[in-house]
């Protein structure tokens, strides 16, 4: 069994804040981390390795320092790490990103047939949830998004049965491999790397693939291959915290305000 897991290096957006005076993004000291959703994808891949002896390849597209997120994946058990890094890949939107990732995984598939491609449900910086499906379409394999449980795997028949989490219900679906799955955070708890694992990861060679290897038409990747463009960026209006008195005569007003918020936030409707 060969599993490819996609990981992305993202800025830790929970540490990003807006300067209230200049209204600009404060990114000072904001570190880059593995997209949290991807850590669940890596964990799930390693569970396939533990259970079925799968070979796990981690793939990332990003700048050279994205190597660090691949090393993290290696530290908990990933066998091979590939970084797709090229100036030509820069500025890509989700479509151009999935073009590059899709082709890279196709190349891996030629070396050793890929049974499962695993991605996080979405990234914390983009929140689009589009790259997973994009990869599936590029590779022309079945896509299963929002998987929150792998029910069973039949290694002989090469089928997998999983559960998908949708808003008000769950689906149990069975498909033949190969398949692309994006996973929910609830699917597992990522393991903590052991020190021998980390030391091993420090020494592992991360393969760098540039467009010289992938040979993609420059017009289909990076900025030129991205159909969406950012026109402008601005700070959102922020709801300021409001403190009100809720005692004595103010009580009714406070309760009214509270109820108004329930309506505002679409919790209840009348």
């Amino acid at each position: 069994m060969h599993i490819v897991v996609c990981v992305k290096m993202v800025p830790d957006t929970t540490q990003v804040s807006i300067d209230p005076v200049t209204n600009t993004l404060i990114r000072d000291g904001v570190p880059f981390i593995t997209n949290p959703y991807d850590t669940n994808a890596v964990e799930e891949a390693i569970r396939f390795k533990d259970k079925y002896g799968a070979f796990v390849t981690a793939v990332s597209m990003g700048p050279p320092n994205a190597e660090s997120v691949l090393r993290k994946a290696v530290s908990i058990g990933t066998d091979r790490a590939i970084l797709l890094s090229d100036r030509a890949f820069g500025g890509a939107d989700t479509l151009a990103t999935s073009t590059v990732l899709g082709l890279a995984i196709k190349k891996l598939n030629e070396e050793q047939p890929v049974d499962i491609v695993l991605c996080g449900k979405q990234t914390i910086d983009g929140d689009t949830a589009q790259v997973g499906p994009g990869i599936a379409r590029r590779m022309n394999i079945t896509q299963l998004t929002l998987v929150d449980e792998v029910v069973s795997v039949n290694t002989e028949k090469k089928t997998i049965r999983i559960r998908r989490k949708l808003e008000n219900y769950h689906e149990i679906i069975e498909v033949k491999l190969p398949v692309m799955m994006t996973v929910e955070r609830e699917i597992n708890t990522p393991r903590y790397p052991t020190v021998p694992g980390r030391l091993h990861a420090d020494d592992v060679r991360v393969e760098i693939w540039s467009n010289a290897q992938l040979k993609l038409d420059p017009a289909t990747i990076g900025l030129p291959g991205s159909p969406t463009q950012v026109r402008r960026i601005f700070a959102p209006e922020r709801e300021k915290g409001e403190i009100m008195m809720g005692e004595g005569p103010d009580r009714t007003k406070a309760v009214e305000a509270c109820f108004a918020k329930l309506l505002d936030r679409d919790i209840v409707h009348v």
Partner: peptide, 21 residues
Amino acid sequence: VMEKAEFPEELIALFENSEQR
């Protein structure tokens, strides 16, 4: 912790927060 990664689960947040932030 270092060889087995076996510890009370509530510590994982502490470990990651300390290392990352």
